[in-house]
C-alpha cells in the first residue's frame, strides 16, 4: 500500500508526474461536466482533527469530481472531541471500508502513526500533521510556480523562491523546502532568527534576515501565516515590528521583478504578514492556489488510490 506522508515519499520523477497529472485534471475542472468516473466505488474519508477550510474542501471537491464516496469526519462533533484515541478512530474507519484516509491532525507524526499502525488497510494521505509536513500544499505551490514561471512543464530548475515568516511552526515551509529543492528551485528562507528552526542550517537553502535585500532576486514569494495558536513564547517584540520588517505591502512588492508571483497558503492575517493591498494585487495568486489545490488533490487521489486493489493483494 502506498501512502503520501511526506515529500520524502516521492522522488523527482514522480513529483513531476503528479504535476503533469494535475495539469490534465485542471481541464476537467474547466469543463462543462466536472465529473470523472475514475474512483467510482472507492471511499475516501476526510479525517480532520484540526480546523481547516481550504485543504478539507479541496480534498472533498477532488474526491467528488473523481466519483469517490466521501465521508467527512471532523474533531468537533465527533468522538475525537470526547477523547477517543487515534487507534479507535482508525478502527472505526476500517470498519467503514475506507480505501483512503486523508488526515489532518495537530500532532506531528499522526499520519505516520496511522499508516504504520496497521489499524487500517487503506492509503493514508497526510493533509498536515502538527509542525511536520503538508505535502499536498507543497505540490500545489510547485504547480502554481511551474504554471506561471515554467509554462506548466518540466521541473523548477533555476527558479528563485523566498519562503517568508514563521518557518519554525510551518509544515508548509518544511514540505516546500523538500519539494522545491528536489525540483531544482533555489530556496531562500526569510524570517527573524527566532522563527528559523536550528536544523534549517543543514537544509539546502539560503537563510536571510533582511527581506528587502532578497526581494529583487525572487521569482516567487511564499508568505507564511503567523501561527498564533502554536506560539507559546514571545518570538518577536510586537506585531507592528514584525509587520514592518517581514510583512509584504505594496512598497515591498514594488522591489520585486514584474513577473514575480506572490503566494500565501491561507488563511491570511491581513495587515500582519501581508497587507490587504498586496493580497489583492495583480501579482497575488492566492485565489488561484485554491483552484490549483483541487487539481493537485485529484492527481494525488488518482495516482495513490486507483489500482490500489492490486497492490493490497500483493
Amino acid at each position: 500500500m502506498r501512502h503520501l506522508l511526506s515529500i520524502n515519499d516521492i522522488d523527482k520523477d514522480f513529483a513531476i508526474t503528479i504535476l503533469d497529472t494535475a495539469h490534465e485534471m485542471a481541464r476537467v475542472s474547466e469543463g462543462a461536466v466536472k465529473k470523472l468516473p475514475t474512483l467510482r466505488g472507492k471511499t475516501v474519508v476526510n479525517l480532520f482533527a484540526e480546523d481547516s477550510t481550504r485543504t478539507r474542501i479541496s480534498f472533498e471537491a477532488a474526491a467528488k469530481r473523481l466519483s469517490a464516496d466521501v465521508i467527512n469526519f471532523t474533531a468537533k462533533g465527533s468522538s475525537i472531541s470526547k477523547g477517543e484515541s487515534l487507534k479507535d478512530t482508525a478502527q472505526t474507519l476500517q470498519a467503514l471500508g475506507a480505501d483512503a484516509v486523508v488526515i489532518r491532525h495537530p500532532a506531528s507524526g499522526a499520519a505516520h502513526q496511522l499508516a504504520r499502525g496497521k489499524w487500517i488497510s487503506g492509503t493514508v494521505i497526510n493533509a498536515g500533521d502538527g509542525t511536520h509536513e503538508h505535502p499536498s500544499q507543497a505540490l500545489l505551490d510547485a504547480f502554481t510556480i511551474r504554471k506561471h514561471l515554467r509554462g506548466g512543464k518540466g521541473d523548477l530548475s533555476g527558479v528563485e523562491v523566498a519562503i517568508v515568516g514563521d518557518i519554525l511552526h510551518s509544515r508548509v515551509a518544511r514540505s516546500n523546502v523538500l519539494l522545491l529543492t528536489k525540483l531544482g528551485a533555489k530556496v531562500t528562507l526569510v524570517a527573524p532568527p527566532t522563527l528559523i528552526p536550528p536544523q534549517a542550517q543543514a537544509w539546502p537553502v539560503t537563510i536571510s534576515y533582511d527581506f528587502n535585500s532578497v526581494l529583487p532576486h525572487m521569482d516567487a514569494i511564499i508568505m507564511l501565516r503567523i501561527q498564533q495558536e502554536r506560539m507559546s513564547d514571545l518570538y518577536f517584540p510586537s506585531e507592528r515590528e514584525y509587520s514592518s520588517l517581514f510583512g509584504i505591502d505594496t512598497e515591498r512588492l514594488a522591489l520585486t521583478k514584474p513577473h514575480s508571483i506572490l503566494m500565501h497558503p491561507g488563511p491570511m492575517n491581513r495587515g500582519l504578514e501581508i497587507s490587504a493591498e498586496a493580497a489583492d494585487s495583480p501579482q497575488s495568486v492566492v485565489v488561484e492556489q485554491v483552484a490549483n489545490g483541487v487539481s493537485i488533490r485529484m492527481a494525488i487521489l488518482y495516482l495513490f488510490i486507483a489500482g490500489s486493489q492490486e497492490s493490497s493483494n500483493e
Binding site: 470523472l36 475514475t38 486507483a306 486493489q309 492490486e310
Partner: peptide
C-alpha cells in the same frame, strides 16, 4: 482525446500517467 481516466481496469491496474487532451 485521452481516455485514461475512463478506463474500466483502473481498479485492477496501476495508475498510468495521463496523456494530453
Amino acid at each position: 482525446l485521452d481516455i485514461t481516466l475512463h478506463r474500466d481496469d483502473l481498479r485492477i491496474r496501476a495508475p498510468r500517467p495521463l496523456m494530453e487532451t
